[in-house]
Simulated scan of single mutants.
Amino acid sequence: GIKLLGGHYPLTVAATARAIKTAAGMGAYTAFHAGTAEHGSNIEGMLEAVELADGNPLHLAHINAYCRGTVRPETEETELALKALLDNPNISCESYLSPLNGTSAEIIDGLPGSMVTRRCLKTGGFTEDEAGMEAALLTGWAQVNYPQGQEMTLLTGEPARDYWLEQKTLVSVSFAVNPVGPRVRLATAKKADGGFIVDAISTDGGGIPRNVLLPAGLALVDLGGLTLQELVAKISYLPAQMLGLTNKGSLAAGWDADITIVDRLRRSAFATIIGGQVCYIDGKILGRGGRIITTAAGADYVRSQGLEPLIVDLADSSVLRKARK
């Protein structure tokens, strides 16, 4: 498959459309962080992406990124995005519940390499250059993703600035740019038939402190925004369907024994079972190694890296099964 990082590193409109069409013709899984040289990572870029898909199946990544109030009021942008999704069933998508995004703090020739980073600096009132990034780090508007032991933490102030410089600016950074209104609306919006307009809820980078699926998701359940069954579908079953993982979603013979036991009071995972093996329990990691989701074409390479391939047939992906009606 392919992911176009247009919001960060835009291509021309023509090149973007050609890439989507070519990938669709090959039966490839195509994801797109909306944005071209014409329109950025905002509601205009999102609506442009829908047009560029031209009826082809497309995973339009993390809808929140286009509903931050940078072009129109955030509530208006959210409703425009939802309407576009309703009108174009060939588009698959997900949203996330964290206020934080994730982007690159790399500076190239005095400017942030990522256009998303530049937009985040502008949103916070900082200049879209190296000096603006340094100022944003010192004030805490920009938060560096910093590895501390086995966890990723967020650094601000002088420690963030110093680490950024030590790494020659090649670090990831987060900004609290996702308003709460769009986060809740996108997670809970439904079609007339009761199905969800936004297919799934994602972490958009669970490797840093943005994986709030359980604490934020269960809070929505407690508030009545989602039922517990709906939350499970949106954070587990439906994402599996998008990836073509057909052997997940049921506790039955012949299905994968992948189970998460959740502590409702703490709103966190108590235990994780993968393939019938307990890999995590009460804060202790017991498993090792991992599996990489791939097609048959990539299986030998995954094995060559010492990992186990989890082979899927993209014909089973709910993303590729979608087409404009």
Results as ranks from 00 to 15, higher is better:
Gly149Phe: 06
Ala65Lys: 08
Met115Ala: 04
Glu76Ile: 12
Glu74Gly: 10
Ala187Asp: 03
Gln143Glu: 07
Leu111Arg: 00
Gly149Asp: 13
Ala160Gly: 14
Gly181Trp: 13
Tyr163Thr: 03
Ser98Asn: 09
Tyr66Gly: 08
Lys190Tyr: 12
Lys122His: 10
Leu165Gly: 12
Gly157Gln: 06
Ala160Arg: 05
Thr153Phe: 04
Thr169Asp: 05
Val171Ser: 00
Trp164Ser: 06
Asp193Leu: 08
Leu121Asp: 04
Val173Thr: 14
Lys122Ser: 12
Thr153Asp: 01
Pro159Asn: 11
Ala105Asn: 10
Asn101Pro: 00
Val177Ile: 00
Asn101Asp: 15
Tyr146Phe: 15
Phe175Val: 15
Tyr96Thr: 09
Asn101Lys: 07
Glu166Asp: 08
Gly132Val: 04
Pro89Ala: 04
Thr169Pro: 06
Arg118Met: 08
Gln167Asn: 13
Pro182Asn: 02
Tyr163Val: 13
Glu77Lys: 15
Leu138Ala: 11
Val171Phe: 00
Leu121His: 06
Ala105Gly: 09
Ala142Asn: 01
Tyr146Gln: 14
Arg119Thr: 15
Pro89Phe: 02
Cys120Trp: 01
Thr123His: 10
Glu128Ile: 03
Tyr66Pro: 03
Leu85Asp: 15
Thr127Lys: 08
Ala192Ile: 15
Lys83Ala: 14
Arg183Leu: 11
Leu170Val: 14
Ala136Glu: 10
Ala84Met: 05
Trp141Tyr: 13
Ala187Cys: 00
Gly181Ile: 13
Arg185Leu: 13
Asp193Val: 08
Ala84Phe: 09
Gln150Phe: 10
Ile108Trp: 01
Gln150Asn: 07
Ala192Thr: 09
Thr188Asn: 06
Tyr66Val: 02
Glu158Ala: 11
Ala135Thr: 02
Leu165Asp: 13
Lys122Gly: 07
Tyr146Met: 15
Ala105Gln: 14
Thr153Cys: 01
Thr188Pro: 03
Leu186Asp: 04
Leu80Phe: 07
Arg72Val: 00
Thr70Lys: 09
Leu165Trp: 12
Val184Gly: 07
Thr123Cys: 05
Ala81Leu: 08
Gln148Thr: 13
Glu128Leu: 08
Pro89Ile: 02
Ala192Lys: 11
Thr75Met: 10
Leu138Phe: 05
Val71His: 03
Val180Met: 06
Pro112Arg: 01
Leu137Gly: 02
Cys67Ser: 12
Ala192Phe: 08
Tyr163Ile: 11
Ala142Gly: 03
Gly110Leu: 13
Met115Ser: 12
Pro112Asp: 06
Phe126Asp: 01
Ala160Trp: 14
